[in-house]
């Protein structure tokens, strides 16, 4: 196969496909910390994030993707967190954000 070089390949869809994603880890995370579901996407965690001001790290986006079953790269992203705790201080829903970070890392990696 691929005897012909067309000069391009079929682009992969970037859609989140809930049918294809394995939500097992996500379900486990939400079972252990159901408060994560109460996130209303206000962004104050990311706004106050020490790491987020220096890197692309966006805690809100990472945990939302994890909840949708998009685990790829989440563990590495969360390594950027400095665990300073400011996000937990500002969260209007009282989510234990540091706890969430440690939980996701535990579930997705060998932390």
């Amino acid at each position: 196969m691929a005897a012909i070089n067309f000069g391009y390949t079929i682009s992969q869809p970037r859609a989140i496909d809930i049918d294809r994603n394995n939500l097992r880890k996500s379900d486990e995370i939400l079972r252990e910390m159901p408060e994560l579901q109460t996130c209303i996407g206000c962004g104050s965690c990311t706004a106050s994030c020490t790491a987020g001001n220096l890197t692309e790290f966006n805690f809100r986006k990472v945990h939302t993707l994890v909840r949708r079953g998009e685990y790829q790269g989440a563990y590495e992203e969360l390594n950027k967190c400095m665990l300073c705790g400011k996000c937990r201080l500002v969260c209007p829903r009282g989510i234990n954000t540091r706890g969430v970070i440690l939980l996701i890392k535990r579930k997705l990696g060998d932390f």
């Binding site: 869809p13 859609a15 989140i16 496909d17 049918d19 939302t64 993707l65 949708r68 998009e70």
Partner: peptide
């Protein structure tokens, strides 16, 4: 909130 299309 993630800026990605979603299908299900």
């Amino acid at each position: 909130l993630t800026g990605r299309p979603l299908r299900m």
